[in-house]
Design a protein around this nucleic acid. Structure first.
Lengths: 198, 198
DNA sequence: GACATACAGTAACGCGGTTACCAAACCAGC
DNA sequence: GCTGGTTTGGTAACCGCGTTACTGTATGTC
């Protein structure tokens, strides 16, 4: 009975792809429904029928971004040196964040006004967290790391990496422009050393 | 010749005060020029003649907020134990951030669309940084901390505190709701221990 | 071929920052 | 003491935003 559907799965992925491009290339301010719809040769109505609104659209970007972030961390091989593994995870973390700063800001800085992560998103985040937790657990089990809850160690490692990356992205003038990479790794090693069993 | 000035210093501080209240109480979305002007019994023109626009207004909030943040850190007494001083500075850092999360987001999360800190603001930030740098310098000079540039150690300490606070504020579901305070202090001590001379 | 129905683009609403405009209020000079 | 000029600031418009109501369109059915 109806007219042919054009708000289909094909359009859905096109909108998501273009939205990601706009966000990554020009920042959160460039991601407007009118522009997005125009560039995808449709109308803003499509975003409402496919995602329920702008927050729904951003939610998809958010979940997908965390997924890819988790993939990057999962790709770091687990060796027989859990402490070194934590350092390598930290380096991968920085690489992931610097590869798309605007997207990283969506994940952690809440730069899109209407969007707040919902509880379901939290489980996705916990998945991203897993490789860190695994490394910390091995470190504690092997007696290399302090006898503390692995969750706390992993969370501390995450916070440390996040803090370093966050400062680098939002206050680049603070860090001496040269040797940030070396400094970052030094800071990572100092941090994990602090959790060593003494 | 002109009509009597009402866009004066008095109105300026009233606007700044109310803007800070709106931001702290209801978040960045509540800080609109129309509402601000209305609640101060003036028009949006006042913000333009006194601050040049919304970014100019936010810039003042930003500088003042960093000033107060620096005061909190400066209030931490320097003892003969620089490592413990760093821990206490970290605790003061968290207290300052939690006392006004929305303002903290303005400082580090760039939650206000049009506003980006300018170079002059960076010097203000460096001032906030001073007590941390001083403690790190004493630690290195006394041979308690590793023989590394104090700037790097202080920056690492800042990043660590910022990362912990940032996760606590933007991803509270991740941290077990109980015992965050204890965990925070443990993480601070682990971090500074990592920078101890070995 | 006409009707009913699902569908999607258009247009309007309210709100945002910003800017152009004009009324108001003063002083100087006649 | 009125008039002209000038500074000042409120009003209203502009443009863009997310969102919602509406209207036209394209189908299958009778």
């Amino acid at each position: 009975m109806p007219r042919p559907k054009t708000h289909d799965e094909n359009l859905r992925v096109r909108l998501l792809d273009r939205a990601g491009e706009l966000l990554s290339a020009e920042g959160p301010a460039a991601l407007s429904l009118r522009r997005l719809a125009s560039e995808c040769d449709t109308s803003t109505t499509a975003v409402y029928s496919l995602f329920g609104g702008k927050p729904g659209l951003v939610r998809e970007l958010y979940l997908e971004a965390f997924q890819r972030f988790g993939d990057r961390l999962s790709a770091v091989p687990a060796t027989d040196d859990p402490v070194e593994d934590l350092v390598q995870l930290g380096l991968a973390y920085r690489a992931g964040a610097l590869s798309d700063p605007h997207l990283y800001a969506v994940l952690f800085n809440q730069v899109i006004p209407g969007f707040v992560p919902d509880p379901e998103a939290a489980t996705q985040v916990r998945g991203t967290f897993a490789p860190l937790l695994a490394a910390a657990s091995r470190g504690v089990a092997e007696g290399v790391l302090a006898d503390q809850p692995p969750q706390e160690i992993a969370l501390a490692a995450w916070a440390n990496a996040h803090g370093l990356v966050s400062l680098e992205l939002t206050a680049p003038t603070l860090l001496g422009s040269a040797g940030v990479e070396q400094m970052y790794e030094t800071a990572l090693r100092a941090h994990v050393n602090g959790w060593r069993r003494r």
